[in-house]
Design a protein around this nucleic acid. Structure first.
Lengths: 154, 154
DNA sequence: GAACTTTTGCTATAATATAGTAATTGAGTG
DNA sequence: CACTCAATTACTATATTATAGCAAAAGTTC
């Protein structure tokens, strides 16, 4: 079980479907491979590729991100933090992949990851009490990162 | 310690500030008082008031919601669930008010509340490990509500 | 009720995302 | 390696949600 994706993996998953391997799709994936751990928005991906000289349309970036987030592809994870725009990151391989949470600085919008899952028991409880079939969860802590907290200390 | 707000409470909070008590602000608050437990978007509040015959502008609704969410007023709580639009609910009075979470149906967008907090210990851990000053948190479970789950059973 | 600030409603604009369309490209086939 | 055809792209127009600017109206204080 590896730690991340590769272009080869993308090719395999595309070949097992009706989708095609295009330059644009490779380029988008490479952005994430080169910047693992970052949480990029569609606009950011678009700008990064444009800056590299790749001529890709914004709509294509959106479509590619959507495709890679689909259950069939399962390469990226879409995250929405209450900002206007969505962000994307490489999906984890582990089966309990949603076991990392996000700390978001209300001042500088920095996103910090925090690994640990304490929701296992809770999921069962919810399933029973609320008759709700859980597919995924998201835990977000809002506050100030170390640097910004300093600015507000008196 | 009461369970909710009243128009009187709104008046008091406005009088203690530079803000004025307008018909529009009362009307917006009344929508939430009459529908406690619901999670309304700005558009929904606007439509509800228009349907009642009140002539209020959409921008005013947005400005009013923002004001009521401000720390000074602290009447409403803004929530962003990864939909495009934000939703609002009456703020709880209890000191540990963020101790309820949301279950969101991926099919019909229904929002169900779930009371219980299991993040107390985790907050301390994060504060120490990540040097992150937590102000608030949000836990969202995505899945299917009972009715929608039935539709997908085979 | 006058004075003065806040607020409103309208409209224009911003920001993010999706839809439509003609032209292009990728992948299988002969 | 060219042919065929569906999938894909780039571009643009459009949708959706939210904010900004401004003249007119309303609330509060005296």
């Amino acid at each position: 079980m590896q730690d991340g994706f590769s272009i080869e993996e993308l090719k395999i998953r595309l070949q097992n479907s009706k989708y095609k391997l295009t330059h644009q799709r490779q380029d988008v994936l490479e952005v994430f491979l080169n910047r693992s751990g970052e949480h990029l928005s569609a606009e950011e991906v678009h700008r990064i590729l444009r800056d590299k000289g790749y001529d890709i349309g914004l709509a294509t970036v959106y479509r590619t991100l959507e495709l890679m987030c689909s259950p069939e592809m399962g390469i990226l994870q879409k995250m929405e933090f209450g900002e206007k725009r969505a962000r994307y990151e490489l999906k984890q391989f582990e089966p309990n992949a949603h076991q990392h949470h996000h700390l978001i600085c209300k001042n500088c919008d920095k996103v910090i990851e925090f690994s640990e899952d304490m929701l296992e028991g809770l999921e069962e409880k919810i399933t029973k009490k609320c008759k709700f079939r859980i597919l995924d969860h998201q835990v977000i802590f809002y506050g100030y990162c170390q640097e910004c907290a300093k600015k507000f200390e008196n």
